[in-house]
Structure formats: C-alpha cells, structure tokens
C-alpha cells in the first residue's frame, strides 16, 4: 500500500501542475492576506468607520488576515482533487493504473491518502504565502504578527485539514463525472456560485435557514472557528454565520461530504468499463 501511495505522489509531482499549483497557492495567499489585512487595518468596514483592527482582539485579527484567502485556496484544492482522477480518464492513463493495480479499491485508497498529503502540503505553501503577505502588513502596522501562538497555530492547522478535505471532495466529483472539463466546471460552479446562492436563498425560507450552515462553504468557515470572542452582530458583517456549527462538527460535516463522494466514486469505479 505504501508503494501505491508513493506512486500516486510521484504521479502528482511529475507534471507541471504540481509547481503551478504550489505557486498559485503561495501567491494567492500572499495577495489575499496582504490585501484583506490592509482592508482590516486601514479600511472602514465597521458601521462607525473604525478599522477592524481596533475593534477585534489581536488573535481574531491575525486569524482573519491569515485565512483571508481560504475561499480561493479551497477552490484550488477542489481542482487538485478533480484533476487527480480526471487527468487519468482524460489521458487514458487509468488503463495503465488499473493494469498495474487491478484491485481498484486499492487505487482509490492510495489516491485518497495521497490527496490528503498533497492537499495539506499545498496548504503549507499557501500558509507560507499568507504569513508572508499578512505578516509583513501586520508588522508594518505595529500590530502583533503572531499573537497567542497556540490558538493561532490551531487555526492554521485547521486550514490544512480543510484543504485536504476539499481535495477529497474534488476527487469524489472527478470520479462521479469522468469528463474532466465537465467535472471542473461543475465543481467550481457549485462551490462558488450555486452553493452561495442557495445559502442566500435559504435565508428567506422560514425554518430552513439552519440548513445553510451545513453547506460546504459555511462548514469550512465554521471549522476554522474564526469568530470566537467576537460580537456576533459584528461577526456577521465580516461573513460569519448566525449560529455556526462547532468547529469539530463542521469538520465532520466536510469529512462527510468527502466520504460520501469518495465512496460513491469508488462504487462507480469498481465496475466501470475502461475503454
């Protein structure tokens, strides 16, 4: 099994996608953390025009700054997941993969483990970008760069978890929809357009608002636990949910999405004809 996982990692590392993805993760991290950081420190997002940095404790500010790019980062992770199987269908390398490992369940398992690793590694690169972009900004503004290391560190680790889970969700989508272009479009559209709209629509539906917090994007924000210790009213203006799930429940919800997609994908792959 370790040989299979290593092989999957080798597969990922031997195309340009790996470097392009890492670069994008890093740059987007730096840009978003730097950009949103500037907005929080110098902008007037609060009703009375005071900068966010003056209303929230340093820990919350650092969390907001360093996770500013999470939406793009998880979209990239989703794409990594779709591609990890979509490319095999597209370029028909899946034949060679299944010839080398005819027990398809093992291939799926190896891909899952490899994706968790790749998702987390890309998360590390992303966070390095965030820490650079956001850190420079905070330092220049004479604000604490890394307050309450244990608490902040936990948030950053959760970023890694979130990205790994989104990669797995992408994998499920990729297996469900063997046409790579279709899978990518559908995944991106679902994550960035359909889901937020649906969530927004639910807020008008009496008795159904609670559903929205189980959606992947809101579960992601809840997993990161960004707004503990912030006035709920104000948290909402920053994009927080009304009554978010506990971080671990939210993480389980994300894991659930990933697991369901992967299992369905595996069931389909098991008997699919490879022509």
């Amino acid at each position: 099994m370790t040989a299979l996982i290593r092989t999957e990692l080798r597969k990922y590392a031997t195309t340009r996608l790996a470097w392009g993805m890492a670069l994008a993760m890093f740059l987007l991290g730096a840009i978003f953390s730097g950009g949103f950081g500037a907005l929080y420190v110098y902008g007037s997002l609060t009703p009375d025009g005071t900068p966010v940095s003056e209303v929230v404790p340093p820990l919350v500010l650092a969390r907001l700054v360093y996770t500013a790019g999470i939406q793009v980062a998880y979209l990239l992770a989703l794409i990594i997941g779709v591609l990890s199987i979509g490319q095999e269908f597209r370029h028909k390398t899946i034949s060679g993969t299944f010839l080398a490992t005819p027990r398809r369940g093992r291939v799926v398992a190896a891909k899952v483990v490899a994706l968790v690793v790749v998702g987390a590694l890309n998360g590390v690169v992303h966070l390095l970008g965030c820490l650079l972009g956001g850190g420079v900004l905070l330092a220049l503004s004479d604000l604490p760069v890394f307050p309450e290391p244990a608490e902040l560190g936990r948030t950053l680790l959760l970023v890694l978890l979130v990205l790994a889970l989104w990669a797995l969700i992408g994998f499920g989508v990729g297996v469900l929809i063997p046409n790579q272009v279709a899978a990518l479009s559908i995944a991106v559209a679902a994550a960035w357009i359909v889901e937020p709209l649906l969530g927004f629509g639910l807020t008008f539906l009496d008795g159904a608002e609670w559903l929205a917090k189980y959606f992947p994007s809101q579960a992601t924000t809840a997993t990161l636990d960004l707004f503990t210790g912030v006035d709920p009213e104000f948290a909402r203006t920053l994009g927080g949910a009304e009554d978010p799930l506990a971080w671990w429940t939210a993480a389980l919800v994300l894991l659930g999405y990933a697991a369901v997609m992967t299992v369905v994908g595996w069931l389909l792959t098991r008997s699919r004809d490879i022509a």
């Binding site: 040989a3 195309t15 390398t93």
Partner: peptide, 29 residues
C-alpha cells in the same frame, strides 16, 4: 506476469516518458 500495451496514446502529455515508466514501476517496486 503480463505486460500489455493497449494504445499508443495512454500517456499524460506533460509527463516525461521516463517518469511515465517510473510511475508504473513504483507500484511493483
């Protein structure tokens, strides 16, 4: 036990020929 070559197009165009083989080789040590 079995070596098979099915179609001449089963390669990722962005992967080198050597890496293509290394990926397959890796599964069998």
């Amino acid at each position: 036990t079995v070596g098979a070559a099915l179609e001449a197009t089963n390669f990722h165009p962005g992967r080198s020929g050597r890496d293509h083989l290394r990926v397959l080789a890796g599964t069998h040590g």
